[in-house]
């Protein structure tokens, strides 16, 4: 019995240690050695502005404006959680909520939204996006920004008269192409992945 108890104790300790090691595998978190002077702050502000516009265009249903924030060759990736503590990290071997290797997949979503022929999407849910806690993950550069943010999207479903708050964290890679900031990569961790009926691009 005593030996068993020792084994149990070490099992308990192991479990505790394991959970201390776990990090959300989004490669987010404030990067070390980020230097922000006046120029960097100006570029960072431009990036923050783009993140806010992303939410605004979705809330205002300005779908074309929203789509144009993304580069044609962008990657849009919302991995699924593998377990309670770990996220998937390979979109070609593991499931994602959404994975598009370019902008064409996002364009499909607009067809669905605009078509009015999806029972889940008509009447159209109303959204309110809030994005905050934006942190530069690399020192902002004139043509490149890597940003962490947290977001919450309140969604009201007029059909059922229900509402739900989707929330999570994101990482954006922005690049300035032909003078315009564009989203090259967007990775989304949906924190509450127990989904009430549906999830669409405007919920995240």
């Amino acid at each position: 019995m005593e030996r068993q108890e020792t084994a149990l104790k070490s099992e308990r300790q192991e479990t505790a240690l394991k959970s201390e090691r776990q990090e959300i595998a989004l490669k987010t978190g404030a990067a070390e050695n980020v230097v922000i002077g006046a120029a960097e702050q100006a570029w960072l502000d431009q990036g923050v502005d783009l993140l806010k516009r992303e939410g605004m265009y979705l809330d205002l249903r300005r779908w074309d404006d929203w789509l144009s924030l993304f580069h044609e060759e962008c990657e849009f990736w919302a991995p699924m959680w593998r377990s309670e503590d770990e996220m998937n990290d390979d979109p070609h071997m593991e499931l994602s909520h959404l994975y598009y290797g370019n902008r064409k997949g996002l364009a499909d979503r607009i067809i669905r939204i605009r078509g009015g022929r999806s029972p889940a999407t008509s009447p159209m849910p109303r959204t309110s996006h809030l994005v905050g806690n934006v942190v530069a993950l690399d020192t902002p550069a004139e043509n490149r920004l890597r940003l962490h943010s947290s977001w919450t999207t309140q969604v009201f479903f007029p059909r059922q008269k229900l509402q739900h708050a989707y929330f999570g964290i994101s990482e954006h890679l922005l690049e300035r192409v032909d003078g315009q900031w564009r989203i090259m990569k967007k990775r989304v961790a949906l924190q509450n992945d127990y989904i009430p009926s549906m999830l669409d691009v405007y919920c995240i």
Partner: peptide, 17 residues
Amino acid sequence: FEDFFNPSGFATPDDSA
């Protein structure tokens, strides 16, 4: 799979609705 069967896909949410 994701395209059709995910709750974020193009078919499943319509079934649930």
